[in-house]
Structure formats: C-alpha cells, structure tokens
C-alpha cells in the first residue's frame, strides 16, 4: 500500500497534464527557427558552420591578419624566402607554411586567396540562385509553352562546354574577377533552375495555391507570397552545396590562368604554380589544396546537415535505418 501511495505522488507530480509552458514556448515559431533548433543539435554541421564562419572572418580581415604576420601577400622575400639554390623555403618560424617560388609567404597568400574563393563562390552562387529561382519558378508555375522553352534553354546551358566558353571569353575580354564570377554564374544557374522548377511543379498543385487563386490573387502575388517562400528550404540547401562547386570552378579557372589575374593570390593559381616544384616543396602544393579541400568539405557537410534540419522527416527516416 505504501508503494501505491508513493506512486500516486509520483503520478501527480509527473503528470500535471496541463502545464501551459510548452505551449507558450513554441508559440509562433517559424519553420526556419525550428530548423535552426534542430541544426544546433547536429555536431558535424555546427563544426562546419564554425569552419565557414572562421573562413569568412579570415577573408574579411585578410589585410589585418597579414599585417599581423608582417608579410604582405605579394611581398617577395628574396633572401629569407628562397633557398640559396632558388627553391622555396620550407615551413619555419619565419614562413609558417613555407614560401613560394619567388619567396612570398604561402600563409599570407592562402589568407588572401580565401578572399577570392569565398567572394567568387558566394557572389556567383547568389547570381545563379537569383536567375535560377526566377527562371525555374516561371517555368514551373506557368507550364505549357513557357515551360518547354525555358526548360530547353536550361538544358542548353547545362550541356555547354564550360572551358571552351571560358577560354574564348577570356581571350576576348581578358581575365578578371568579374569575368570569373560571370562565367561561373552563367554555368551553374541552370542547376538551380531545374531544381526550382521541379519544386514549383509540385507546389503549384497544392491546394493552398488553388485557394489563393479562388480568392482572385494574381499570378505574381501567388508566386511571391505562396510559391517562393516554400522554395527557401531547398534553395538554402542547394546553394550551400553550390558554393563549393563555384569555389572549385574558380580554382580551376585560376589554375588554367583564366581566373583572377596574377599577382592576386588565389588557391587555384597557387596550386598551379606549385606544380613545377612540388617534389622539392610539397608544402606549397599541400597547403592551398588543403584550404580548398576543407572549405569544400565544410560547405558540403553543412549542406547535408541543413537538408536534414529543414526536412525533419527525411532525417528521421535515416536515423531509423
């Protein structure tokens, strides 16, 4: 009997049943807030986010950082930075990550390279998303002839020979940061467009779109108010995955000498110039490659984490398996 009595107390305590707090706590929480709450529990994604924030900070404060180190990226240290035989110096207390073929500090150059990589990656992706969402939404929403036309256009862009185009454009216009961004955005927007079109095709059939129509809403209003907000999640995920693609594109362009003109340091042109001395100076190849690798990996893992956080059902299914 004492046992039962004790339990009863426990029950009364445990099962208040009408504790109003949880209801209040979740009142009006936006889907994105919930996603953020979920993301916070994902250690890998948080670490990746940390890495990315760090990279952004490095890129923003590149000048201050290199000032602190005392080695501007384009300063050639002919004496301390080169071995007597003209080869780059190994990592040391002077050049933490070693020097390059003309005696510049690899660390400083990687720091400044982050600037270019992130700038190109983010801006090109932003343009791509802007164009892709616009075109993709129109194709998916209007359907019919408009869709056929826009979809075929996207197909054309997706099957364009990227390098040939880049080479000829640079030949005509000369290499520059702007051209890099343009070329990259030009080539990746159709990916966004396709994904968005697919999403819009299904959103268009939702009853809430029909409801808006039955209320007399215009197409523009429906697209802006009802369709695009529902694209936020997939677009966030997809752009997170697209940024590293753009960064690698940029590195490729720089590697081929089609990107940002020298002497501006980029990870791509560093990797390119390191080729000639990689046997003697592996660090010169290693560190820029590592920077590129870590950045790409961080964005990709974060993208996956975001996908799970924004679509909890998928995450749960995965967790169960």
């Amino acid at each position: 009997m004492t046992l039962i009595a004790a339990d009863e107390v426990a029950e009364q305590k445990g099962g208040g049943g009408k504790d109003p707090q949880p209801t209040k706590a979740i009142e009006g929480r936006a889907p994105l807030q919930l996603a953020w709450a979920r993301l916070r529990k994902d250690k890998v994604s948080l670490a990746c986010l940390g890495v990315i924030v760090l990279l952004v900070l490095v890129a923003i404060f590149a000048n201050q950082l290199t000032d602190l180190i005392g080695h501007p990226p384009n300063e050639q240290y002919r004496d301390e930075g080169l071995q007597p035989n003209g080869l780059p110096v190994a990592p040391s207390s002077f050049f933490w990550l070693g020097g390059d073929e003309v005696g510049r500090d690899v660390l400083s150059r990687i720091i400044h390279g982050a600037r270019v990589s992130l700038l190109v990656g983010v801006v090109a992706t932003a343009f791509a998303v802007l164009i892709g969402v616009t075109i993709g939404t129109m194709a998916g929403y209007f359907g019919g002839v408009i869709d056929t036309f826009l979809s075929r256009t996207m197909d054309v862009f997706l099957s364009f020979p990227f390098l040939l185009f880049a080479i000829s454009l640079v030949a005509v216009k000369g290499a520059s940061l702007r051209i890099s961004i343009f070329v990259i955005a030009f080539f990746i927007w159709a990916n966004v467009g396709r994904i968005v079109r697919g999403q819009v095709l299904s959103i268009r059939e939702k009853e809430y779109v029909e409801a808006a129509r039955s209320l007399g809403a215009s197409d523009l209003r429906i697209m802006v108010v009802d369709v695009i907000p529902n694209l936020v999640a997939p677009v966030i995920v997809y752009s997170t995955l697209l940024i590293p693609t753009a960064i690698v594109f940029e590195a490729t362009l720089s590697f081929l000498g089609l990107g940002v003109p020298i002497p501006t340091p980029t990870w791509g042109n560093m990797i390119a110039t390191s080729q000639s001395t990689y046997l003697q100076a592996p660090w010169y190849l290693l560190f820029p490659s590592l920077a590129l690798f870590i950045t790409t990996l961080a964005f990709n893992l974060l993208g996956d984490g975001l996908r799970d956080a924004l679509d909890p059902r998928a995450a749960r299914v995965l967790a169960r398996k």
């Binding site: 504790d19 949880p22 979740i26």
Partner: peptide, 23 residues
Amino acid sequence: DSVDVPDGSAADVPADVGADTTT
C-alpha cells in the same frame, strides 16, 4: 484549448516524465 498542439509540431518540447513511465 491548451493541448491543441498536435504531434510533431511540439518539436522541442521535451518528453515529460509522465505518470506512465513510472508505472
């Protein structure tokens, strides 16, 4: 009126250690 939050939306409400668990 206050129990009207359906399953799932209560995403971050911790499972309370209700009477049932003890029993």
